[in-house]
């Protein structure tokens, strides 16, 4: 289980995360939703250690992990925008990341096929389209079989076919007991995938709980409307 305990972060004078305390459960998909600039990506980056929180703790199985790096062995991360060293080829990037994780370089053909990346393997990163870079990113997030999978707007650049097979893959990962964290702007996608919802507004958690409960308590049957209502309410 991944737990955030009283995490706060300021960028300059702006408070980006304000006393965030929440859990991410094993075998569940937790989606972080909220308007632009509400701190979604910052939470993810805090978990990854890319952003250093001003205060608070991050715990994995009740072990504090801020400042350490070994725990990332168990995390697969797909960023919003993927960029890789320009002069390398796709397979070289895969080999490099394997190598950094202390693994023998090898290619998971099945995964590669499922996201249709196999044709790009020998291409240089420079010549890769944005979508193909996303695919590579997705591949890298999943291939090492991590216990925690963090996906920041995963389907944004993917074509519908790959997007669909990728979602299937994520659901399969959930079945095998992974902890999955997701952000997305596409509410239908969140409804389709999520077990739990964390709703962020200006760095504060407005709602944290199951999707069903959120829908039930708001009396709406679409998440989009429920979320919009919640935003209106908090503005008042």
């Amino acid at each position: 289980m991944l737990k955030l305990d009283d995490i706060s972060k300021k960028f300059g004078k702006i408070t980006v995360l304000n006393k965030i305390t929440t859990d991410f459960e094993k075998g569940r998909i937790t989606s972080i939703v909220g308007p632009n600039g509400s701190g979604k990506t910052t939470i993810i980056k805090t978990i990854l250690g890319l952003v250093k929180p001003d205060s608070g703790q991050i715990l994995i199985n009740n072990q504090q992990i801020n400042g350490s790096h070994q725990y990332r062995q168990n995390i697969g991360y797909m960023p919003q925008l993927s960029n890789f060293p320009e002069n390398l080829k796709v397979y070289e990037v895969i080999n490099m990341v394997s190598d950094l994780r202390g693994l023998k370089p090898q290619i998971d053909e099945k995964l590669l096929n499922s996201i249709k990346l196999n044709a790009e393997l020998n291409k240089g990163i420079k010549t890769l389209s944005g979508g193909n870079k996303q695919k590579l990113s997705a591949y890298l997030a999943l291939v090492f079989n991590p216990s925690f999978i963090i996906l920041d707007e995963p389907t944004a650049g993917l074509d519908p076919v790959v997007s669909c097979s990728f979602k299937k893959r994520i659901l399969k990962e959930r079945e095998s007991g992974k902890t999955i964290i997701l952000t997305s702007h596409i509410m239908s996608e969140i409804e389709e995938l999520s077990d739990n919802i964390i709703f962020l507004l200006e760095g504060r958690i407005v709602y944290s709980g199951s999707l069903e409960f959120l829908l039930a308590s708001s009396g709406e049957d679409s998440l989009e409307v429920a979320v919009a209502n919640m935003m209106d309410r908090s503005e008042e």
């Binding site: 250690g49 960023p79 993927s82 960029n83 890789f84 060293p85």
Partner: peptide
């Protein structure tokens, strides 16, 4: 400046800064 993405990629791996 050109390495920021690379740095981000590497920092998501179990590597110390």
């Amino acid at each position: 400046y050109n390495s920021i993405e690379y740095v981000q990629l590497v920092l998501c791996q179990p590597i110390d800064r």
